[in-house]
Design a protein around this nucleic acid. Structure first.
Lengths: 261, 261
DNA sequence: GAACGCAATAGTGTCGACACTTTCTTGACG
DNA sequence: CGTCAAGAAAGTGTCGACACTATTGCGTTC
């Protein structure tokens, strides 16, 4: 008997509209799951700001569920490094510093290079061909897609390499990393500094894969990622500024609102 | 301001005696944490068997807490890959097949080699010296230690390399991997096939570190881990046999106990 | 005699409540 | 005026209860 693992890794772009709305109608059966997705989205989009304390009651009200599923979701997010937990004080949004981000990218580079190498050793020709055709199918339209699509396709490309490595651990890890850096990648894609060099990178990587040239392929990958990192640096600074500067006085209101009907 | 992450990674060898006993006296304040440690231990030691469905009520009784902290612990364990969650059916002990174990070891090898390389590039002399002295301090007594100590010291050695890489992500990942394969490493250490070649491996690795010889060091590491893997294969088979054979009929009692005052 | 429902039971998912801890407010004292 | 302490308020950690879902056992039909 095969045990089905739920894999809640990727559920990118849906599931948060109408969470509260639906709550009235249905008796809810997967509040935890939905809470998880919603909260993660809030984190990824900086709606919950780094370092901020997370108020469970407030969150549970805005999502229209009780605190229990909120806590379950937060526990999972804590294991995944999105938030941290201090006993008796609650959950805090993990502050993703520039430094931490670099570590994450470095980790990503390690995973991807290893995956590529393993793919070269193990994948059979038809599998390599899957990679090639995946890329060829999207390459033409690629630069003209909206940011969301570019991001998804890019992640798909790299994730496929991980899959072809034959090691599910790598796939899981890369998924997790992707989720954690997605927000910044999105920002970077929308940032003026984003250029089309990615395309040639990907094409070159595919080429190396077809030739089973692990050495050159990993070099390309490493450079590809490093290039992204440096391009991301400025974008990150701009983004952080944007997050902390336009203070629409939400904090102040919070103080007042004590008792609401 | 630096946010301190709680890091529940390592709490190796304690925290489960007197869990139920203490529950009477104190009003409990960290049941979740304790449940987490206890359950993880149960998993690691095969007290909860691979593929088995986890009964929350049963668990909560035996730990003397309500289901809430149990579920929080299980959620964390699910994120970490120890158990899986199927909606409306509950948590299942993740079946760690031989195959899955190989993937895990491979992943470990990837992390460790990368860490070593980074360490060679970045660690200053005093840090490298910490590694050297760590090993020199324990090497003589090493082979004569009890299995628990050997395991802890070995993990400490490899973890130190990860720390010296300067990338906290790697440390976290390696901790997590260690926890997941600890049970089998223990079995392997106690197994007759365990030999003292580890010692010379570690010494050689230290030597390479001192010389900042990344290439040779990673090669040694890779071989070191691969050697462990192959030595582990037979030990694993023996262990699995031992786990599934002695059925002490605990299941039957469960049927009777329906209503208790 | 086997397949199919159907009721009874076991078990999960969620909720609201309460005890305890931390944080904020207020007022006395130096 | 600033510091500190006591009380109030807010918030977390845990519990028991209940609604809903899956599973098991039993009787019916073909």
């Amino acid at each position: 008997m095969r045990t089905v693992v739920t894999e809640r890794a990727e559920t990118s772009a849906d599931s948060d509209p109408s969470l509260a709305a639906e709550a009235e109608t249905r008796r809810a059966a997967d509040s935890s799951e939905r809470a998880y997705n919603t909260i993660r989205k809030l984190l990824v989009e900086f709606k919950l700001k780094p370092g901020e304390r997370i108020n469970e009651v407030q969150l549970s009200r805005s999502l229209g569920v009780s605190r229990t599923p909120i806590r379950e979701a937060l526990n999972r997010l804590a294991s995944e490094g999105f938030v941290s937990l201090t006993p008796n004080r609650g959950f805090f949004v993990r502050s993703l510093s520039t430094e931490g981000l670099l570590d994450l990218y470095e980790f990503r580079s390690i995973i991807e290079c290893a995956a590529f190498k393993l793919m070269c050793e193990r994948a059979d020709d038809s599998e390599i061909d899957r990679l090639r055709s995946y890329w060829e199918a999207i390459v033409d339209a690629y630069p003209d897609q909206p940011p969301d699509v570019i991001l998804a396709e890019d992640e798909g490309f790299h994730l496929l390499i991980a899959e072809l490595s034959g090691n599910p651990e790598l796939v899981g890890q890369l998924s997790s990393i992707n989720a954690r850096i997605r927000f910044i990648r999105r920002i970077q894609i929308e940032h003026p500094s984003h250029d089309k060099a990615q395309i040639t990178s990907h094409s070159a990587i595919v080429e190396a894969a077809v030739k089973r040239d692990a050495e050159n392929g990993t070099k390309l990958l490493r450079e590809h990622i490093e290039m992204t990192v440096s391009a991301t640096q400025q974008a990150l600074k701009d983004a952080l500024l944007k997050v902390f500067a336009p203070d629409n006085g939400a904090e102040l209101k919070r103080r007042r609102r004590a008792r609401d009907a």
